[in-house]
Design a protein around this nucleic acid. Structure first.
Length: 569
RNA sequence: CGGGGUGUAGCGCAGAUUGGUAGCGCGCUUGGUUCGGGACCAAGAGGCCGGAAGUUCGAGUCUUCUCACUCCGACCA
């Protein structure tokens, strides 16, 4: 391919609305362009890399026995109504109507249509297990699209769904997908970790995310350096801490705390540590008000709380509800003397505290020396807080650390959630009708591509791993008017092309510096420069990633490239 | 959803407080000199200043509305 013919709009300057490296480089290297917020076009060079990732995903899915199909992106509302998700997705779903007013949406994920397809066509255990997948555009009207293709509103996802006759079958299907995912991300050159993830209120027996460690990742991960434990922060359990020496319970006192509403203000006002306070936070869980309590310096884990309550929607209570329930302005909620009887959920850690400080349910007052059971009765004492660095590992007890990660894949044991609600049944050996046991497995293709760039770049641009480089090699004649140089470059280029290497020839009448900069920016892994020693038959071979440079004959250079790309194509 | 910021040439930006009909760098075109890490000289092309309404003799600039993009937050008891 001639660079002079290539639609590859590279830019020198960093686009002003790109924050993270992968986004900046994808724009600068001309891989993609924004069409609207969270919606992108892939241009030829970017699309080649994109298709490399797709191809790897496809090969490994096929190898794992999954069968590819394609569902429509536009789907009738009814499909999502029977599972309840038409409502549950809320404003995150792109909705539209046809000319006669029938409701449709752009599919945000395809559990329902896959389940229906299998339900309508599979009757017997003899037809199970089956795993189907597609590589399809997905649409989610994200609250806040950002970081380019990392959190987009239109994105390509490989989604797979497994259907099994029993749990043991699901375990096998799940493990097969797990192994395929490891091969996929290995081949993409990603450094990733596998973390336990929240399996949601719908139950299911497990879920794991493939995370690429990155400071720009949107998920927080807790991991244990001493054992192999790692979990999404929203999932990681916090162990009950040891209670200290038993202390005498002091008498409750009501303290005036005018205009002191936050823990920070309280610390200053009362000259106490945030660890002496217990904060009481009111939530509305599907419209029902509940209270949750954690130590003053801790954070409530809303995922854990949502799961505990089995709630579809959990939001902080509004000021009106807070005043109605506590009889006080916002900022003075506590567990005792509530005006309205509501469930009070208390974190495990609070159960080890004595004589703590809480809001008095009275504007401008707090209570000190509050004690569990003596002064209020919790509805339940459970793990409610978010894990923090230094907390004990739930497996080995050693201190955990936290980091951030990009979620590139998620594998999920669904169980019978969808097969129950959509009636996806089969007849087992005994002639009994049973719901199929399902799993679902997703990979964000664009996000994976961006994650690769986040892990493979330098100050000059992208450094593609050979397996997903849009072109594996580039031949650069330093002077486009020198016939000797041109002839050699052209010869190398056509030899490589004939041998099946994806290779560029930068035939533009540009100065060498421009060509080097572009080649580095778009991240071509292997480069042959034909220049000053061309007349002696000597060219330069250079590797983008390692920086290795050496001089050799043209034939040697061709052989070197063939050797390097062997097994890639 | 809450709060901030920005929309001026393909890209990055100035001009706005003090209204007078638009400029810089990069890129692009032509010619010449160059040619191993984003060259130089010269001559050019390119803009309903996001949109609408208003104030004014006159609006990129002032007012109002609107749209888009973007960042931060969405833990406050």
């Amino acid at each position: 391919m001639l660079v002079s013919k290539l639609f590859m709009p590279t830019q020198r300057e960093i686009p002003s609305d790109a924050e993270i490296v992968s986004h900046q480089l994808m724009l600068r290297a001309g891989l993609m362009r924004k069409v609207a917020s969270g919606i992108y076009s892939f241009l030829p060079v970017g699309y080649r890399a994109f298709r490399k990732v797709e191809a790897i995903v496809r090969e490994e899915m096929d190898r794992a026995g999954a069968q590819e199909l394609i569902m429509p992106a536009i789907l009738p509302a009814e499909i999502y109504m029977s599972s309840g998700r038409w409502d549950k997705f809320g404003s995150e779903m792109f909705r539209l109507q046809d000319r006669s007013g029938r409701q449709f949406c752009l599919g945000p994920t395809h559990e329902e249509p896959f389940t229906e397809a299998v339900r309508d066509n599979v009757r017997s255990y003899r037809q199970l297990p089956v795993t189907l997948y597609q590589i399809q555009h997905k649409y989610r009207d994200e609250k806040r699209p950002r970081f380019g293709v990392m959190r987009a509103r239109e994105f390509v996802m490989k989604d797979a769904y497994s259907f099994d006759a029993d749990e043991a079958g699901l375990d096998i299907s799940y493990k097969t997908m797990y192994e395929a995912y490891c091969r996929i991300f290995d081949r993409c050159g990603l450094d990733y970790i596998l973390v336990d993830a929240d399996s949601g209120a719908m139950g299911g027996s497990g879920s794991q995310e493939f995370m690429v460690k990155s400071a720009v990742g949107e998920d927080a991960i807790a991991f244990c350096p001493s054992c192999s434990y790692a979990a999404n922060e929203e999932k990681a359990p916090c162990k009950a801490t040891e209670a200290g020496e038993p202390k005498a319970l002091l008498n409750v006192e009501r303290i005036a705390t005018p205009h002191v509403r936050t823990i920070d203000e309280l610390m200053k006002y009362m000259k106490a540590s945030s660890k002496d306070f217990v904060k009481t936070i009111l939530y509305s869980a599907d419209g029902k008000i509940i209270a949750a309590m954690v130590r003053g310096d801790r954070e409530i884990n809303e995922t854990k709380l949502t799961n505990l309550l089995d709630a579809a929607e959990l939001v902080l209570a509004g000021a009106a509800d807070i005043e109605r329930v506590t009889g006080a302005e916002v900022g003075f909620a506590g567990p005792a003397r509530l005006k309205v009887d509501i469930p009070v959920y208390v974190d495990l850690e609070v159960a080890t505290m004595t004589n703590f400080i809480v809001g008095a349910n009275e504007t401008d007052y707090h209570l000190i020396n509050i004690n569990l059971l003596r002064d209020f009765r919790p509805t339940k004492i459970v793990d409610l807080r978010t894990i923090e660095p230094g907390d004990p590992c739930p497996v080995c007890g050693g201190p955990v650390e936290t980091c951030r990660g990009i979620e590139v894949g998620h594998i999920f044991k669904l169980g019978t959630k969808y097969s129950d609600s959509l009636g996806c049944m089969f007849l087992d050996k005994a002639g009994q009708e049973k719901p199929m046991i399902m799993g679902s497995y997703g990979i964000g293709v664009g996000r994976t591509l961006a994650a690769v760039i986040e892990q493979h770049y330098d100050e000059n641009g992208i450094i593609w791993p050979l397996a997903i480089a849009p072109y594996q090699a580039i031949v650069i004649p330093t002077n486009a008017t020198d016939q000797t140089i041109l002839a050699i470059a052209d010869d190398i280029h056509s030899q490589l092309e004939k041998a099946g290497v994806e290779v560029l020839l930068d035939d533009r009448d540009e100065r060498p510096g421009v060509k080097f900069k572009d080649a580095d920016l778009i991240g071509i892994p292997l480069r042959i420069t034909v220049g000053r020693k061309a007349a002696e038959g000597i060219v330069e071979y250079k590797e983008r990633g390692t920086g290795i440079v050496s001089e050799m004959t043209a034939n040697e250079a061709v052989a070197k490239i063939l050797e390097m790309t062997k097994g890639i194509k």
